[in-house]
Amino acid sequence: MPLKYRHVIWIVVLVLVIDQALKFWIKTHMNFNQEFNIFPNWFRIHFIENDGMAYGMKFGGDAGKVVLTLFRLAAVVLGFRYMKKLVTQGYGTGLLICGSLILAGAAGNLIDSMFYGLIFSATNYYEVAKFLPPGGGYGTFLHGNVVDMLYFPIYEGYLPKWVPFKGGDYFIFFRPIFNVADAAISVGVISILVFQKRFFGKHHEKLAAQEQLPVTK
């Protein structure tokens, strides 16, 4: 069954619920930089916050943060319109699911950036954040920090001496800490890059077949 626009909305809502529920739990149950193991040696929950882009990358201080948040807002608004266009034009289920994941991820981090500074107290090393604190949140509108917690240090140790450039250095793979929204964006983008010929090729073949159909009276 072809994916419809309401299905796109449901995918976005599902990812957002998972993303925000986990972030809310982390904010209200863990101190900053606290971690615990899920699977020993390769999967941990490690609570950090960042005021920049995905996977902890920074972008130009307070002014850069506002620009980044407004860019996310514009991307989400335009993303919903573009997804509706893709559905109308009859693109395949795979592309629409990938687009929905990217859109949901952008919306998830946008919520953090827009509202978390207003609704949570500051996170520190000694106590968990409070939801809707009496004195107000730790920041202002558009100045919230993005909550990250998923950490996969699959390999951690010293590299062999024979490894070029980094031989003998302490090395962690995979070092970045991220969240469900980041993961959704990454899965969507990588899948489109890997399967772009299938996603777009099938659509073009479908259009070509429709153009060759005889006109019936």
Rank of each mutant, 00 (worst) to 15 (best):
P2E: 09
V8F: 08
I11Q: 02
V12L: 02
V12Y: 00
V15H: 04
D19P: 15
K23L: 01
W25N: 05
K27D: 13
F32E: 11
N33D: 15
Q34E: 15
Q34L: 10
E35V: 05
P40D: 02
W42E: 13
F43K: 03
R44E: 15
I45V: 09
I45G: 07
F47E: 06
G60S: 08
G64A: 09
G64C: 09
V66D: 01
V66E: 04
V67H: 13
L70M: 09
L70W: 11
F71N: 07
V76C: 11
V77P: 03
V77H: 11
G79N: 00
R81A: 13
Y82S: 12
Y91T: 12
G94T: 09
L96S: 12
I97F: 09
G99D: 08
A104M: 10
L110R: 06
D112M: 06
F115Q: 04
Y116S: 05
N124G: 13
Y126N: 15
L132V: 02
P134I: 08
P134E: 00
G135Y: 00
G135H: 04
G136Q: 10
G139A: 13
L142M: 13
H143C: 04
G144W: 12
V146P: 01
L150V: 07
F152S: 10
P153W: 00
G157C: 03
Y158T: 15
L159Y: 11
L159Q: 03
K161I: 12
P164C: 00
K166N: 03
G168T: 10
D169M: 14
F171G: 08
I172D: 06
N179A: 04
A181T: 02
D182E: 04
A183W: 12
I185N: 05
V189G: 06
S191D: 12
L193F: 14
L193P: 01
F195S: 07
Q196F: 14
R198E: 14
R198N: 14
G201M: 04
K202A: 14
K206S: 05
K206N: 06
L213Y: 14
V215T: 05
